[in-house]
Structure formats: C-alpha cells, structure tokens
C-alpha cells in the first residue's frame, strides 16, 4: 500500500498526495519506520492478553507512570494513578464519558494544563521519548514544539491561510520566504488541503468550511514537525462528510506521527485507532488493542459503555 501510493502521480486524490508528502515530513532519525510498523502490527494481532501485552514489540513514545493530577492544588484528584504507554506511530484513542479525565490527560502530555494556575501533578510522572516532561530542565515551549495539539473547536487565526500555516515557523524566527513557502506547501499537502486552497493562500482562513478549517489547524500543527500530535475531539464540531475527511487524514498521518486522539464517538475510535484506552471517573479502566476492546472487553464497565448501557 505504501509503496503503491508513493509511485502515484501527485494530484489525483488528496490522500494520495498526503502519503507521499508525509514520508518527507517524517523525522530524520526514523526513516525506516513505516515498513517496520506494518510487520509489528501483524505480530501484535496475535497477542491475547488485554493488559499491555498488546504493545509488545512497539517502540514506546509516551510513558505515563502512576499519574495523579489535580486541578485544585491537590484537594481532589481528577486523574487517579494512571499508567499507560503510548506506542510510536500508532493511533491511540481515549474514550470514556464526559468528565472522566481523558481531555485532562491529553492536555497533561504537552503541559497545556500549566495554563491553569491551580493545577498540579500530585503523583507519578510522564515521560516522552524517555524524558520526564515535568522536570525543571524541560521547557514547555520546546516540549510543545515536539508535542503538537489540535483542538475540539477549530481555531485558525483570523489571518490568511498562508499566515496560519507559517505561524509556528515564524515564531521560531524563520523569516526566509522560500523556506516558509516550501514548508507551507508541504504541510498543506500533508493535511490534504493543498489542492483545495492553493489558489487562495492569501485569503482569510475564516472563509474556509468547518472541515477545511480543522484540516488547516492540523496543517498548522504538522508545519512545526512535532513527534506527537494530540487531538482533543477534533471532529466533534464537524458534519459527517468533513469528519470522514479528517479521519482519512488521521489514518495517513499515522505513518509519520504518533497520534493520541480523544473522542466521544465509539465508531470513530474503532475505525481509526490501533489502541484504545477507556477511562471512567478519572481512572483507566481498560487499555488494549482496539479490536479487543470493542469485541471482547475484559472489564464489565467497558462492555457496558461500548454497548451503550451507560454513558
């Protein structure tokens, strides 16, 4: 599949473009990642144990170790002793009813929760690429360049499409026009948006449709070439057709980025994710391969939730 899309001419179909571009965008240290990922995936499929055996043979990108988190200086814990590992270049979905802490957890991963003054980690730690991210030596600014985020409500700046995508590079001090042009095109192609907007890059981003705006936000995120992309319910404000396009995009992005997605839609999780974690009331109830969680969950709560008996 991969080799086939790469040989295709560029602009037949947005997704085809995406695939070829996405390879270019991949971090230089893992150029051989896509083929390896495919083989490992097939190995994992045989694993039957529901705990963390499903990650066997996969590189771990994010390690969450016994994490407890509080929004009110430790009076009550919003997240309680969560431990889970997120594999590299896979889509990991967080599901669970509202208020179960899945968004909180995802915002911990790039320290967006620092914006809430009274928030604090009460126990445990998060390691990304082996580095404890709440260590004093870690700059949240640099962390966020590696761990990008796409938000629930698409939020392009009221600037031109071009300026939106170039924003992240510009604040890093890149001013050369040819560099910016190149990066903008690459990112827009990567986000499967290039063919739709290439003739109106200088138009306001707010003139795009909702789905296009969300894909622009994704393009903006991948322009700074992060390792991990966090998506906080990226399709909740979109109609089914726009959702389908974004999902298609996520499937393509998986080849180059580690993606963590929070979603309310169980169908979406089962369609696009490789692994699924189910949260309830701030606790991790079950974490496993998506097929396992949806076909044969270990826990009764999980079964109840995915079969719609509560939540």
């Amino acid at each position: 599949m991969n080799s086939m899309t790469q040989e295709e001419p560029k602009n037949i179909e947005p997704t085809a473009n995406l695939a070829s571009q996405a390879v270019d965008l991949s971090p230089p240290e893992t150029p051989d990642a896509p083929p390896r990922q495919a083989t490992e995936q097939s190995e994992v499929r045989h694993a039957e144990t529901p705990t963390s055996d499903h990650l066997l043979g996969l590189n771990t990108m994010v390690e969450i170790d016994d994490l407890s988190f509080s929004y009110d200086m430790g009076k009550t814990n919003t997240l309680k002793n969560i431990s889970l590992n997120i594999p590299e270049k896979q889509v990991t979905a967080f599901i669970g009813p509202s208020g179960c802490g899945k968004s909180t957890l995802i915002r911990c991963l790039n320290r967006m929760n620092d914006l809430v003054e009274t928030s604090c980690i009460t126990n445990g730690e998060i390691r990304i690429m082996g580095q404890h991210i709440h260590a004093k030596s870690v700059s949240p600014i640099e962390l966020r360049k590696q761990v990008g985020m796409v938000f629930q409500k698409y939020n392009p700046f009221p600037k031109s499409i071009y300026d939106n995508v170039a924003y992240g590079l510009r604040i890093q001090g890149i001013k050369k026009k040819n560099l910016l042009d190149e990066a903008v095109e690459k990112s827009l192609r990567g986000a499967a948006l290039w063919d739709e907007v290439k003739d109106r890059l200088k138009d306001s981003a707010l003139g795009l449709s909702g789905g296009q705006q969300q894909r622009l936000c994704i393009a903006r995120t991948i322009a700074v070439q992060p390792k991990v992309i966090l998506m906080d319910e990226p399709c909740s404000a979109l109609d089914p057709i726009a959702t389908a396009k974004v999902e298609e995009l996520i499937m393509e992005l998986r080849r180059d980025f580690t993606i963590v997605i929070v979603t309310h839609s169980m169908q979406q999780a089962s369609r696009i994710s490789d692994h699924t974690a189910f949260f309830y009331l701030g606790e991790l109830i079950e974490y496993g391969k998506t097929d396992m969680i949806f076909s044969n969950p270990n826990q009764k709560q999980t079964e109840d939730y995915i079969s719609g008996r509560f939540g």
Binding site: L115, F151, G168
Partner: peptide, 27 residues
C-alpha cells in the same frame, strides 16, 4: 479574543509574550 487563539499559539511552541503579541493583541 477567543481562548482558542492563545491555546493554538502556545501549542505551536510560542512563548507567552509571543502568543500575546501575535495572537491576542492584534485581534
């Protein structure tokens, strides 16, 4: 100015002042 602008800017690796200068004050 929507909170989303600040978050988006910060999530792209802007410092606080950069995000205020480029994503809050202009609007």
């Amino acid at each position: 100015v929507p909170m989303g602008f600040r978050e988006a800017s910060l999530a792209l690796g802007a410092t606080k002042w950069q995000s205020i200068r480029t994503a809050v004050l202009p609007y």
